[in-house]
């Protein structure tokens, strides 16, 4: 529990969330959401929740990003906001 590392990771998580919302290209937004999930996974490993970090890294950052990318490829890549 190092609070400097904790604050650093929390700031990166917020930056990734804001970027994922504001980017107009949907593929970039989805990849940044994957980066967000990995930062969240690091945060949980740092908090001591190793099982939750493993599950997040495989399920949410892995399978979730693959599902999102597949859906973006099957639909449209541009977005208006």
């Amino acid at each position: 529990m190092i609070w400097q590392l904790d604050l650093f990771l929390l700031l990166f998580v917020i930056i990734c969330a804001l970027a994922a919302i504001n980017i107009k290209d949907l593929l970039s937004a989805v990849i940044i959401l994957g980066a967000y999930s990995f930062f969240m996974c690091l945060l949980w490993a740092e908090m001591g929740a190793v099982d939750v970090a493993f599950t997040e890294a495989t399920v949410s950052a892995g399978v979730g990003t693959v599902l999102f990318v597949a859906a973006v490829f099957k639909t449209v890549r541009r977005s208006k906001d």
Binding site: A20, I21, Y36, M40, S60, F68, A71, S79, D81
Partner: peptide
């Protein structure tokens, strides 16, 4: 947000 994929990304952020 008006885009449906953006809404889903927001839902993921909310849950996380």
């Amino acid at each position: 947000k008006r885009n449906l994929v953006k809404k889903l990304i927001g839902m993921n952020i909310f849950q996380t």
